[in-house]
């Protein structure tokens, strides 16, 4: 991946974060924490990895995304708007009466949404179905599945994981958004599922842990060719990433506030140069 590509993806991720906050700001409340934690992932998927055509959202052999943690809808909507699936202004209709952008992803309403999600755990099985259907129909494409770490408390997640590995569904890529928190607090305090990576490996996945805010690492993991085993990416992320006030709020699953609060968040995000500089610094330090 070239420096230019990295920069482009970092910028795209930032735009997604800004779009996400603007989207939630329009309604005054929303699922901000888990939306911001997947912004870099969405930037890499839609910026470089996925074979999609915004002018033909139903193209049969497209790569597909199932955001099983359906409450991250605002981040997905921002991504789709920035990709041109629908006008950016539509983001400001989140959860308004009659909207095409409900709180949780809905394939019947929103162009570019491949699967309806919201009842946690269910997107794992529907993603399996999409991938299986593509395989049965001989399509050369992949399905990317984003699962919340708290969501993994649902038993259905493990039924679907078992099936994915048992049937060697290598055209399905699992991504666990390991942001450590759920609505009621830290996952370790609510109902700790333990070592995600070890669990997926035990099922028969090729599992890897990746920094969820490093676009290069994400790109590398997402473009790895699955040979015999399906791939599971444990994405080490921060709930609310990119907005300090959200990151530092314990209960950041869904947040509510006045316009000033959101404007403060946007001001921080728009300090693009400073934010990017910090990232570059971190990367340089890691390389050193």
């Amino acid at each position: 991946m070239t420096k230019e590509q990295v920069k482009k993806l970092q910028e795209f991720a930032l735009e997604i974060r800004i779009g996400t906050v603007e989207c939630i700001k329009s309604r005054g409340f929303g699922h901000v924490g888990g939306s911001l934690s997947v912004a870099d992932l969405l930037a890499v998927l839609y910026g470089e990895v996925m074979n999609v055509d915004p002018s033909n959202p139903k193209k049969e052999d497209r790569d597909k995304l199932v955001c099983s943690k359906g409450h991250a809808g605002p981040a997905v909507y921002a991504t789709l708007a920035l990709k041109g699936y629908f006008p950016y202004e539509k983001l400001f209709t989140l959860n308004q009466p009659g909207t095409d952008l409900p709180s949780h992803c809905d394939r019947k309403k929103t162009p570019g949404i491949d699967m309806t999600t919201g009842s946690l755990g269910q997107g794992t099985s529907t993603a399996v179905g999409l991938a299986l259907g593509d395989r049965l129909q001989g399509r050369d494409c992949r399905t990317f599945l984003i699962v919340g770490d708290g969501e993994a408390e649902e038993g259905q997640v493990w039924e679907a994981a078992m099936f994915t590995a048992a049937k060697k569904l290598t055209n399905l890529v699992w991504i666990i958004d390991w942001n450590k928190k759920q609505l009621d607090g830290y996952i370790k305090d609510v109902n700790d599922p333990g070592d995600y990576r070890a669990k997926f490996e035990a099922f028969g996945f090729d599992a890897v842990t990746v920094d969820g805010h490093d676009v290069e690492k994400l790109y590398e993991a997402l473009t790895k060719k699955a040979e015999d085993k399906p791939i599971a990416i444990i994405m080490d992320s921060v709930k609310g990433k990119g907005v300090t006030a959200v990151e530092q709020t314990m209960a950041n699953h869904s947040m509510k506030g006045g316009q000033e609060m959101f404007d403060g968040w946007l001001a921080e995000l728009r300090e693009f140069d400073g934010w990017l500089a910090e990232l570059r610094e971190k990367q340089a330090a890691m390389k050193a």
Binding site: M115, T126, Q156, E159
Partner: peptide, 26 residues
């Protein structure tokens, strides 16, 4: 045949898979 899918004892997963298969055109 590969269109006979035994999901094992996991009915919730099976119905979800069926829904995904429908979305893929099956």
């Amino acid at each position: 045949g590969d269109r006979y899918i035994n999901c094992g004892i996991a009915e919730a997963n099976m119905i979800g898979i069926a829904a995904g298969l429908s979305a893929s055109g099956m």
